[in-house]
Design a protein around this nucleic acid. Sequence first.
DNA 1: TTGAAAGCGCTAACAA
DNA 2: TTGTTAGCGCTTTCAA
Lengths: 339, 339
Amino acid sequence: MGKLTIKDIAREAGVSITTVSRVLNNKEEGMSQKTREKVLRVMEEVNFQPNKLARGLVTKRSNMLGLIVPNISNPFFPELCRGAEDEANKRNYSLIICNSDDQSQKEENYLRLLQEQQVDGILLSSKNRLSKTSKNQLQSGKIPYVLFDRGEEASNQSGVFLDNERGGYLAGKHLTDLNHTQIACMTGPTEIQNSQQRLLGFRRSLKEASVQLPQSFVLIGDFQMESAYRLAKEFLQNNTVTAIFASNDLMACGIYQAAHELGIQIPDQLSIIGFDDIPLVTALIPKLTTIRQATYEMGRKAIELLINEIENKSSEGVVFEPTLIVRESTKKLKRGVDI
Amino acid sequence: MGKLTIKDIAREAGVSITTVSRVLNNKEEGMSQKTREKVLRVMEEVNFQPNKLARGLVTKRSNMLGLIVPNISNPFFPELCRGAEDEANKRNYSLIICNSDDQSQKEENYLRLLQEQQVDGILLSSKNRLSKTSKNQLQSGKIPYVLFDRGEEASNQSGVFLDNERGGYLAGKHLTDLNHTQIACMTGPTEIQNSQQRLLGFRRSLKEASVQLPQSFVLIGDFQMESAYRLAKEFLQNNTVTAIFASNDLMACGIYQAAHELGIQIPDQLSIIGFDDIPLVTALIPKLTTIRQATYEMGRKAIELLINEIENKSSEGVVFEPTLIVRESTKKLKRGVDI
DNA sequence: TTGAAAGCGCTAACAA
DNA sequence: TTGTTAGCGCTTTCAA
């Protein structure tokens, strides 16, 4: 026998398919308790599993959501996905996860695919501004979507973002509060807004403390460990700083390696502060001081917004505040000390 | 206007819906080039997106696959998911990802949910043996599935596994080859078969080298960093060993912490070898020597098997071989040295 | 309180 | 080479 349908249940229970459909959807009104129980019993007996595709075809609701991340292997995203999945599941939605590798081409393909799969909404963490094609794709489909992790200025589009400027500011302030005056900064790719914002905030805090940030102390990284290692190694061989702010934790790891190989002690000779607070960062020795994003919560919230938008058509953005997590990789300098 | 359907395309192009369906499905036979082009043009113009739910309803193929992992936040799994997603996408399938937290209850719920969503197959990484309910669920639905990462003895069920015994053996052999004779081992939970297998192989290698493994040197961990730290700290305060094998990298991280706090130098006073080779492990100082699983490739292969099973009904298991990755956390002892 | 019937958007015989 | 028609499994008027 193939899969059972409501027809089979109806026949077995001696009622019409309408009635079966009614108990399936918990329609309270108008139905004798007896009938309902009879149907339920039959369903139970045969372990009936309604076909959601068929339902979706008529209700225009698939109860599926798309989630596009740059790369799930980037340790920043699993937590986010987890938050998203938990919230989605709680609200009876399933999550289709896609990796765009920050390529517009892939992003656009997935956007189209997801719409063909009739997802009810899309959660999108796109590199930067949406490509025109992506935007068209999204809007022509009239599909609710919320953006995550990257800003879209002056948009009425709902989204979940971090106050990156504030994060950069906190990092810089922490360092200047510890009396550091010779500070370098490793940013992410310049075309990514998040990088820019973090650098901006960082600059602001240094300025407040009257600390200079020479242009040559701003290293342009790419958010990866490997290149951060190389950049840092070269930089540290030729320059003297007492602290570095890495725009994300992965790059901070690379800096650890470089310092280690050069025999530079953290935090005694060099303070390092990261950004993100990815889980494994507590495994570093010494433990990394960093700026935390509430990643799980952001994933959860993003889904919440998305579902609200789907169900009520209401829509608003949320900006999360980063927090400073002081661990062991930053150290207070005696006032006026230069190494 | 609502979403466009093949009806609209048919009307616009002045053909029947059958014809539209035909070009949609690239049916070569019988259709003038002119008609095909006309239809394609119309589709192009309005950016037509066929409804896959409707198609699935008739073809009995949703082109969706379910992937159940214990927890995507465990750094072992993102790589796997990535491999799975890439392969799925290449073959035109989408992936619904679910976190079971190793709870049978959640696993069963997801299994049911996925079947109701009409996924074409399921990739399942279950804690241990499948619960009876899960098994029933899977079999009553007649849904193709492949198991991942954990064994199911004497089953004709296809799956993708690692030779964990061999991995444990390699770890032990590496240590004895380096002349270590006082060795401890931190395992995962005893009820997880993988743990057992790794320990078994480890024991075998020590035996071959005539090295004792006292019962008190076998620490039962839980694959987490935190408890590994606590276990290791207590153990290292009261015992003298020159090497520890951690059954996964996360626990190795915890041991690093403990050693660090006790002032024990790695690898000079203590060699550590891990298991898995999760990405961030190269960020540890010194870099961790470990047993590598080809995680991405396993994810890819698992999807390949699953799709084969779906499409050809053929089915076979694959066992991957672990490899030893020597980095900096293990050190050769002079023969006959005891500390 | 219940059921008959239409139809969601698509595919697949079968006919022409 | 093309079209007509009957469903896929479900929900939803509308009628009884």
